[in-house]
Simulated scan of single mutants.
Amino acid sequence: MKNSRGVMALIVAIGAVVCIPQCAQAGSDDGASAPDSGQSPARSPEEIHVQSGVPRSTQPALSGKALDTHVLTQLKQRFDAADTDHVGRINVDQARSAGWGYLVNHFSQIDKAGRGTASFDEIANYMRGMGARM
């Protein structure tokens, strides 16, 4: 019993020696991340770092009505890709196959009539009701 406590104390001490420097480095304010962590430190949107080699957009940033229109267009393209039957409605399996987890998770709220399908307008109206600007 006494020996197992000693082994446990040794394991805790080794863990502390290994973890504390990494935790201290991850919490530092110099913006550096641990080299093996694979994660960037949390930054405010104004400080987002773009990796070198990624080309900058030549298009002006979208805002206002242009941004709303762009979001609606992207949503429609995603809906059309999920609508593999080309009937203007999708079911939960089509949404799941398209990787549209948000829609899958809220499908019963979108499909208020309980038909088992949702139109683009029903999806867009639901998202607007949840606060999306489009």
Rank of each mutant, 00 (worst) to 15 (best):
C23W: 14
G64A: 08
P35F: 01
A42G: 05
D93F: 04
A9G: 14
C19A: 15
F107A: 12
L72P: 00
A42S: 10
H49V: 15
H70R: 09
W100V: 01
T117G: 04
G101I: 01
R56Q: 15
R43C: 09
A81D: 08
Q39T: 12
A24N: 12
D83I: 11
Q74S: 04
N125A: 07
L62M: 14
A34E: 01
F107R: 13
M1F: 13
A42T: 10
C19H: 05
C23D: 05
Q39Y: 10
G15H: 00
V50H: 02
I90Q: 10
D68W: 05
L67S: 10
H70A: 15
M8A: 15
Q51C: 11
A16G: 15
G88R: 02
A24Q: 12
N3V: 15
F79I: 04
T117E: 14
I11L: 15
N125K: 07
Q39S: 07
V87Q: 13
Y126Q: 08
I14P: 00
R78F: 03
G101L: 06
V17D: 01
D68H: 14
L62F: 09
P45K: 02
A95L: 08
S37R: 00
I14G: 00
T58A: 07
D121Q: 14
D80L: 11
C19W: 09
T69I: 08
G31F: 08
G116W: 11
T117V: 05
I11T: 07
T117Y: 10
S63G: 14
A32C: 03
F120I: 03
R5K: 13
A132Q: 11
G131S: 06
A42M: 08
F79Q: 09
V50G: 00
M1I: 08
P45Q: 01
A118Q: 09
V18T: 02
P60M: 06
A42V: 13
Q22K: 11
S33N: 12
W100A: 15
S52M: 09
R89T: 09
T117C: 07
I48A: 02
A16K: 00
V104T: 04
G88Q: 01
F79K: 05
E46D: 10
M8Q: 10
S44E: 09
V87S: 11
A95E: 10
S63F: 11
A66S: 15
G6L: 15
C23Q: 09
A98L: 02
E47T: 07
Q109Y: 09
L67V: 03
Y102F: 15
T58Y: 00
V71T: 08
I14R: 01
V87G: 06
F79N: 11
G99A: 05
F79T: 08
A66M: 10
M8D: 07
D85V: 05
S33T: 14
P60N: 04
Q39K: 07
T73L: 07
S40G: 12
A118P: 04
Q109W: 06
I123T: 03
D80R: 07
R78Y: 04
G131Y: 03
G131E: 06
D121R: 06
I11Q: 01
G114E: 04
G116L: 06
M134V: 03
I110R: 13
